[in-house]
Structure formats: C-alpha cells, structure tokens
Amino acid sequence: MKTKIYNFLSKRYIVILTMLIAPLFGFIDRNFVFFFGLGIAFLILWGSNFEWTKFGMGKKITRNTILKSLLITVLFFIGFSIIDSFLQHYLGEFDLSSVEDIRGNFVGYFVLMLIMWVFAAFGEEFLFRGYYMKSLAELLGNSNKNWFLSAIITSVYFGVSHIYQGTVGMVSVFLWSLLISLIFNKNRNNLFLLVLIHGFNDTIGLTLIYLNKGNLISEWIQQLF
C-alpha cells in the first residue's frame, strides 16, 4: 500500500492536480486548502522513507544559515516596510482581523507564535517551495528558466492564498514570496534557510501587532507622500 501510494503521488503531474484541487477545499474552510496540499506532500515524504532531500532539505541548520537568515530578514523588513506603505497608499489597509485578538494578549501571542513556526514557517515553506515550486520546476524541465517560471507561478498561488488579507495583502505576499522563491532558486538544497527567514519575518510582524506597534513605520513613511 505504501509503495503504491508513493508511486502514484510521486508522478510529476500530481503537483498540478494538487494545486488545482486544493483551492476547492476553500469552500469549506481556507485552512483546508493548505492542509490538503501539506497532506499530499507528507504522504510523498512518508512513501519515500522520509527522504527530506526530495523537498530541498539537504543541509542542516548551521550558524552560517542562521546568520544569513537574520540578515535577509532585516533587509526584507526594511524593504517591505517601504513597499507595503506604497501598496497601502494605493490599495488600502491590510485586513489583519485574523490576528487582531493577540494585541496585548500574551497567551494568544505565545500560542500563535508556536503555531506560526510550525505551520507557517516550516509548513508553508515545505509545501510551497519544497513541494510545489521544486516539483513544478522539475515537471517543466528543471532548467534555470523553468525554476524561475515555477517561482512566479507558485508566488502567484501563494499570494492568492492570502486573499483574506485583502488586495494589498495578496500583492505584498506575492512580492515577498517571489523574492524568497528566488532565494530558494539559488539555494535549492537548503530549504531551512527559507524556514528561518519566514519564521523570523513573521515573528517580527506578530510581535509588533502584539505590542500594537504594527502601523508605526508605515504611518511614518506615508507622511513622506
């Protein structure tokens, strides 16, 4: 049974079917879209006897990886503080209603932080970059051009999956995803780098919301218009 499941799910076209079917679960709950795809990816991982390299996890977390991820996170934070301010000026505010209840709520903040590191930082990178992007690039031909095309496709897909944050959220997440996908393109065997960048980035964002300071930077930048 295990071998049959693996042989079927590891067929290259399955990634396309998964990406097409997953959004249908959004009619039930948006979280099901994510967990359906993640379930398929984990079945493939299980069937391969946990061959993590199939998902770009060929390197362990090292001090150099941590330092590199922190540097990139800082650059992303500065860059997207500016980018998001421009986007909000023209596309409206982010819809942060899904995390509003953590403002001043330490327990809620702590619990959401744990959930974020497991399902957003690790889970989303494992699914969107480790499975979707890598498998799609291999399906298209595995050339550098096809990896770039896969980065664009999966970034659009990732951005649309954040529609609950509003139009500005989809555009911002698309741009963020495209940049981190290009980093994966240059580090195809080091998905943990992306996991750390994603986790550190969201840690900053959630902490600012918890402290009710999330709009300070964007408000200051918007004053420059």
Score class of each variant (00 low, 15 high):
residue 124 E to Y: 01
residue 124 E to H: 06
residue 124 E to K: 00
residue 124 E to I: 00
residue 125 E to K: 05
residue 125 E to Q: 09
residue 127 L to P: 02
residue 127 L to V: 04
residue 127 L to D: 00
residue 127 L to M: 05
residue 128 F to A: 11
residue 128 F to S: 15
residue 130 G to C: 04
residue 130 G to V: 01
residue 131 Y to C: 00
residue 132 Y to V: 08
residue 133 M to Y: 11
residue 133 M to R: 03
residue 134 K to I: 14
residue 134 K to E: 15
residue 135 S to F: 14
residue 136 L to E: 04
residue 136 L to C: 04
residue 137 A to S: 07
residue 137 A to L: 00
residue 137 A to M: 02
residue 138 E to A: 12
residue 139 L to C: 01
residue 139 L to D: 07
residue 140 L to D: 01
residue 140 L to C: 05
residue 140 L to E: 09
residue 142 N to Q: 06
residue 144 N to W: 10
residue 144 N to H: 09
residue 145 K to N: 15
residue 146 N to L: 06
residue 147 W to M: 04
residue 148 F to E: 08
residue 148 F to M: 11
residue 148 F to D: 04
residue 149 L to P: 08
residue 149 L to N: 05
residue 152 I to G: 04
residue 152 I to P: 01
residue 152 I to H: 02
residue 153 I to E: 09
residue 154 T to D: 12
residue 154 T to G: 10
residue 155 S to H: 03
residue 155 S to M: 03
residue 156 V to L: 07
residue 158 F to Q: 07
residue 159 G to C: 00
residue 159 G to F: 04
residue 159 G to I: 06
residue 159 G to W: 01
residue 159 G to Y: 02
residue 160 V to F: 14
residue 160 V to D: 10
residue 162 H to K: 05
residue 162 H to F: 08
residue 164 Y to W: 12
residue 165 Q to G: 09
residue 165 Q to C: 08
residue 165 Q to Y: 10
residue 166 G to F: 11
residue 166 G to P: 13
residue 167 T to L: 15
residue 167 T to S: 11
residue 167 T to A: 14
residue 168 V to K: 08
residue 168 V to L: 07
residue 169 G to S: 06
residue 171 V to M: 02
residue 172 S to N: 08
residue 172 S to L: 04
residue 173 V to M: 15
residue 173 V to G: 07
residue 173 V to D: 09
residue 174 F to T: 03
residue 174 F to P: 02
residue 174 F to N: 00
residue 176 W to R: 10
residue 176 W to A: 12
residue 177 S to T: 08
residue 177 S to A: 13
residue 178 L to T: 04
residue 178 L to F: 14
residue 179 L to W: 05
residue 180 I to C: 10
residue 180 I to Q: 11
residue 180 I to H: 06
residue 182 L to A: 11
residue 182 L to C: 11
residue 182 L to I: 12
residue 182 L to P: 12
residue 183 I to S: 04
residue 183 I to Q: 01
residue 183 I to V: 15
residue 183 I to Y: 07
residue 183 I to F: 12
residue 184 F to W: 10
residue 185 N to C: 10
residue 185 N to W: 15
residue 186 K to L: 09
residue 187 N to L: 07
residue 187 N to S: 13
residue 187 N to W: 06
residue 187 N to P: 13
residue 187 N to R: 12
residue 188 R to H: 02
residue 189 N to P: 13
residue 190 N to H: 05
residue 192 F to I: 06
residue 192 F to Q: 08
residue 192 F to T: 08
residue 192 F to D: 07
residue 193 L to D: 06
residue 193 L to V: 00
residue 193 L to N: 01
residue 194 L to C: 13
residue 194 L to T: 03
residue 194 L to P: 10
residue 196 L to F: 11
residue 196 L to M: 14
residue 197 I to D: 03
residue 200 F to D: 04
residue 201 N to Q: 15
residue 203 T to F: 14
residue 204 I to N: 05
residue 204 I to P: 02
residue 206 L to E: 00
residue 207 T to N: 07
residue 208 L to A: 10
residue 208 L to H: 05
residue 208 L to Q: 06
residue 208 L to V: 06
residue 209 I to P: 02
residue 210 Y to N: 02
residue 210 Y to K: 00
residue 210 Y to R: 03
residue 210 Y to L: 09
residue 212 N to D: 14
residue 212 N to S: 11
residue 213 K to A: 14
residue 213 K to I: 04
residue 213 K to M: 15
residue 214 G to C: 05
residue 214 G to V: 12
residue 214 G to F: 12
